[in-house]
Design a protein around this nucleic acid. Structure first.
Lengths: 144, 144
DNA sequence: TTCAGTGCAAAAACTTTGCAGGAGG
DNA sequence: CCTCCTGCAAAGTTTTTGCACTGAA
């Protein structure tokens, strides 16, 4: 998602939710966009500290949650006990292949996945917001 | 999985891996089987303490990992930063619907899921060990 | 002016590690 | 008898909370 568009979306979201528009929140947003995919809250905090930003850990955590609610970011978690975030620009139908050897993450897209989700949700009388589909194993570089 | 069968499987696994067969490990196994699905290591530890067992936290964590390697249990994680375990008796093709309101977990089975996994893995030249498929949303009791 | 948001540090929640003593093979 | 395993507590990681101050509306 482009920076300006994300800023606008976040502003609207903050106003609607009666949250205040603060420079810190937009600093976090900017670093999150720069940071690319699959970063953790603490990664981002450290990155921001090194990048001369003075935002506190608490604000980073708080803001990332807001960005998830606002659907600018998506929350992920890959079996390690920490939360990853990624841009939700094009997250439909996309899952992750996680290599147990190198920790690498490959994304995949498959339209059939959302068909299945629709089907399962219907059968179980459930209302879906999001899903995660993680496949664990070994990538081609590390399977002998 | 039945208790006796699990004991036997675990014994074989321990012997092959040159791990010792200790009463503590089988206590953990028994509580894990009793505990049903989707418990955390610490839940189990507390449960064991209340249940007059004297096994330490470290042993519980350690043994659960062994039970995962042995494929008696499977590791899960649902977006909260903690690890859940469940019996892997019939985990093929099975995913989870997680209600954001009540935290309830519904399991689903769908043979098409493993077809898709096979397909994706093939395309990406990846070797899959396991997958998790979590759908987040609201169950029928909590969507108005 | 007012109160939500902030920075900081302390606490909390979950998990791992180090060590000395004990028991399995 | 030699290690591996255990219990305990301490330390490690990641995230949340409390508090006094600040700044957005």
């Amino acid at each position: 998602m482009k920076k300006e568009k994300a800023h606008e979306k976040f502003k609207v979201f903050l106003r609607n939710g009666k949250h205040r528009i603060t420079p810190e929140r937009f600093e976090v947003l900017d670093f999150a966009i720069e940071s690319g995919d699959h970063f953790t809250a603490d990664d981002l905090y450290v990155e921001m500290k090194t990048g001369k930003s003075n935002v506190s850990r608490a604000t980073v955590y708080n803001t990332l949650e807001l960005l998830v609610k606002c659907e600018i970011l998506a929350k992920r978690n890959f079996g390690e006990n920490k939360t990853f975030y990624e841009s939700s620009y094009n997250i439909q139908n996309h899952g992750h292949l996680i290599c147990k050897v190198c920790g690498g993450i490959i994304e995949f897209n498959n339209p059939k996945v959302s068909e299945i989700v629709d089907n399962i949700v219907l059968k179980n009388n459930f209302k879906a917001d999001s899903f995660q589909f993680n496949i664990f194993g070994t990538c081609n570089k590390h399977s002998k």
